[in-house]
Design a binder for these strands. Structure first.
Length: 246
DNA sequence: AACCAGGACGTGA
DNA sequence: TCACGTCATGGT
């Protein structure tokens, strides 16, 4: 680790830290448990989630239940880069039809068929390459949990994808920062717009209990809240603003 | 008909 | 380090 200067762009007062936790409790009361990461098919799936047909499992944190589901989460994390989950779901279903949501099946799939299958998720040339790179890495892991640095060394895996894989596929408490997180926290003036990914991640992890369930739900709740209130500009008066004092 | 969607990478200051 | 262009399909 190299020495780093303190991020001047972040408020570090007690007020902002407690605000970050109260945001979580407010969102949880408002929207309920989110049941991420969505999986194609499993027992007890919940079909009533915004923007998706099936796959969520609120209150059940026992996923993934096997290596295949773990693999599916990883592939979904790559496919959802800058793409809505509805589109990713189409791609995942197409892959599943080809028996390519297993490591063995994916390894057999031709590049051309892979590209066609994931086309709905966009960037199919890049994402096909990313998936193939990840398959090599996943095989190399041989069931071991990767470190964040290992994940980041894989071509096509950036900070958010790495943290999503750690948090949802491996239950490692690593907070996921996405565009919605930055948008909401910035609008609430809890961060500067220019705050870096790692700055925001560090702030969240310092403010919250370092628990997988909290990180999973918080991230998913921010996404749900953003879909409700931050999809189109100008952003309206956030319901959180009147409720995060203390 | 622009604009956005659960980003990452390559490039040149 | 960082700002900017590129990648691509499909919703609203």
């Amino acid at each position: 680790m190299q020495a780093r200067s303190a991020p001047s762009s972040l408020p570090s007062s007690r007020y902002s830290r407690s605000s970050l936790y109260s945001i979580y409790t407010v969102l949880l009361k408002e929207y309920g448990m989110q049941g991420w990461w969505p999986l194609l098919a499993h027992q007890g799936m919940n079909p009533t989630k915004t923007g998706s047909i099936t796959g969520y499992h609120p209150g059940d944190y026992s996923f993934p239940k096997n290596e295949q589901q773990r693999f599916e989460i990883c592939i979904g994390a790559i496919l959802t880069q800058n793409t809505s989950w509805v589109q990713v779901e189409k791609a995942l279903k197409a892959l599943n039809q080809l028996n390519a949501l297993t490591i063995e099946g994916m390894a057999k799939l031709s590049l051309q068929r892979l590209k066609i299958a994931i086309k709905p998720a966009g960037y199919f040339n890049q994402k096909a390459k990313k998936i193939r790179e990840f398959v090599v890495f996943f095989t190399y892991l041989d069931g071991r949990t990767p470190s964040r640095e290992e994940l980041l060394s894989v071509w096509g895996v950036g900070p958010e994808t790495a943290d999503s894989i750690l948090l949802y596929a491996y239950h490692v408490p690593s907070f996921v920062v996405d565009a919605y997180t930055r948008r909401i926290l910035s609008h609430l003036r809890l961060i500067e717009e220019t705050a870096s990914y790692n700055d925001i991640k560090a702030m969240m992890e310092q403010a919250l209990p370092q628990e997988v369930v909290v990180y999973q739900e918080y991230h998913a709740l921010l996404v749900e809240h953003a879909k409700q209130q931050y999809s189109k500009k100008p952003y309206s008066q956030d319901i959180l603003l009147s409720r995060i004092h203390r």
